[in-house]
Amino acid sequence: MKKLLLTAALVAATSPVFAGDVVRMGTEGAYPPYNFINDAGEVDGMERALGDELCRRAELTCEWVTNDWDSIIPNLVSGNYDTIIAGMSVTAERDQVIDFSEEYIPPEPSGYLAMDAGVDVSQAVIAAQAATIQAAFVAAQGWTLVEFATPEETIAAVRNGEADAVLADSSFLEGHANDGLQFLDRKESIGGGVAIGLRESDGELRAKLDAAIQSMKADGSLNKLIVEWEVGSTW
């Protein structure tokens, strides 16, 4: 049915009608509790709740889009969507390519999940999602790193023995700490807090979102979301 409307779509796409500002929110949809696809097939999670509230406060109309983690920054700068709201930590490297809003989740130490609590991470094979702060960290330590495109695969790699431990945000790992997988005592403090990624030329949108985040911090509603979804420490 959708495809039959192709012609209608092309007509609609060529007529310059503006129904207010629509901000396209890009996310990964595979990283609970930050963002995931729910049973109904829609984007859900802490960031969905946060994003919708920010859009309401900033009086923006928002539309949710999912994109592969690997190409999430290239597709932002080439304009396929306007924000990245996907549990992305602020780092200096990313900051050179894109801009970040004010942080909405404070820096959280990353944790390890392993089948055996006695794993020595410096001698072990560590799984991490490609292009994350955790993957960069393991590589910088000179340890053995195996990278995967999706968070799900990093967990599966530890379960089937391909890797000895997985390094990721603790709140994500929390949901997988069962059936023999357990946290190591060791934690790593890497990277900054989590913020919304924006194009460097998009100062106006950034100011609007910053103001909305500040107002949510001020009235405690952001802390409420963080507690509700268990995504780390509160402000």
């Binding site: 959708k2 779509a9 796409a13 503006f18 629509v22 539309e63 460097e200």
Partner: peptide, 24 residues
């Protein structure tokens, strides 16, 4: 810099278009 910016009317599809238009 890294950004590719065209005016809003030139966006394809328009950012105001519903998601299914983007998919098509």
């Amino acid at each position: 810099g890294n950004d590719f910016i065209v005016c809003k009317a030139a966006k394809l599809p328009l950012s105001t278009a519903p998601q299914w238009v983007h998919e098509v």
